[in-house]
Amino acid sequence: MTLPRRTLVCVDDTPFYHITSRCVRRSFLCGVDHATGTDYSHRRLFIEQRIHLLSSIFAIDIAAYAVMSNHLHLVLKLSPEVIDKWTDREVVDRWTSLFKGPLLIQKYGKGGLLDTAEQQAVNDIIDTYRRRLADLGWFMKCLNEPIARMANREDGCTGHFWEARYRSQALLTEEALLSCMAYVDLNPVRAATATSPEQSEHTSIKERIRPSLHLADAITTLVQTHQLNHFNVTLKPLLAFEGNVTLNEQQGIHFSLYDYLELVDFTGRVVHDDKRGAIAPQLPLILQRLGINRNTWLNNATAFEQIHHKRFAKKRQCVKHAA
């Protein structure tokens, strides 16, 4: 019997979850339709951009993702403790970047004077928004619905784009987390649409290896096309690899990025009878292909997140101007 999603998600058990969404009838609605030859590949970029946008608005981090031609994979970390640090104004700014909100919230956002009853109503609404900004269901709703509406508008049709809401799987151990992330990052290789992880498009592993500015550019486009009301939240990079467990407070993945790349490369070379692709055995190891050595990688692994954040921060000025 199918269980309600609220019974499948418990942050006390684990904050990490594997999420999948498939296109209706598993059609190639985000790739090249084999039947008609129509190319829908631009939708994959839109989905990738929106994943990053929503992660920056919600108290949810992205550990891994892969946007395929007819489905997507996400490995998410829920961080509900973060929302307690946000002010009421910040909560409203985050939520109203996606939704206008009722008239009272619009009045509050503009700095209008509120009487006691109105202020109490606003406080109740803000409490609701605060819970939603840490909720997996609302995250997926804000991801999937706009994509479905955009696709139907492009195709001049109505009906479902996704075959269901989404499927979630709790990742209860570190082994489960790492194996799931490697599975997600190797999806294009297994589908024989890429020969190696660093060549796989619209995946988290390529972003970690070769970060691109097109994700930051997308925010300006979303504001200008009225798909995003405004955006004054710092764009968030992927969840960081923090190496081994330490005495300090850690929010990231307790594994090194160097070791993870080797793990993905090793796993990708294993041939599966039920999969079309694998990394060719004659290819050199991934760090050799990238032209870096172990010491260089270990020195730069943490700096990458800072560099990635600075690149996004430069683009943020354009976003503010557009808003």
Rank of each mutant, 00 (worst) to 15 (best):
K107Y: 08
S55V: 09
G111F: 01
S69C: 11
A64H: 07
I62A: 03
A64M: 03
T87V: 00
S97W: 02
I62P: 04
S79L: 07
L113P: 07
K85N: 15
D84L: 14
Y108S: 05
R89Q: 14
V67R: 10
A64F: 02
Y108N: 10
A63H: 02
I57N: 08
V92P: 06
I105Y: 06
D88I: 05
L74V: 08
Q106V: 05
L114P: 03
W86T: 04
M68F: 04
F99N: 14
R94K: 11
R89M: 11
I60F: 00
N70M: 02
L104C: 06
W95L: 00
P80H: 11
V91M: 07
G101N: 01
K77N: 02
W95M: 05
A66D: 11
E81M: 06
V82I: 13
Y65I: 09
V92K: 04
S69G: 12
G109I: 03
I62S: 01
G111K: 04
W95T: 04
V75Y: 03
F58W: 09
L114A: 04
D84H: 15
T96C: 13
S97Q: 03
S97M: 09
K85F: 14
L72I: 14
V92W: 08
L74P: 06
I60S: 00
K100Q: 12
I57D: 01
L113R: 13
L72Y: 15
I60Y: 00
D61T: 02
D61K: 00
E90P: 00
G109K: 09
D115Q: 10
I60G: 00
T87P: 08
W95H: 05
M68N: 06
L113I: 14
L113V: 15
A66E: 04
G112M: 05
V75P: 00
S69F: 00
V75N: 05
S97K: 11
W86F: 14
S79G: 10
Y108C: 00
W86H: 10
D93N: 13
L103E: 15
P102H: 09
G109E: 06
V91H: 07
K110E: 10
D115S: 07
A59Y: 10
V92M: 08
G101D: 05
L98S: 07
S56E: 09
P80N: 10
V67A: 09
N70L: 06
S55A: 15
A64P: 02
R89C: 11
D93R: 13
E90T: 12
V92E: 08
I62D: 05
K107T: 13
K77S: 10
G112F: 03
L98N: 09
D93V: 00
I60W: 01
D115C: 06
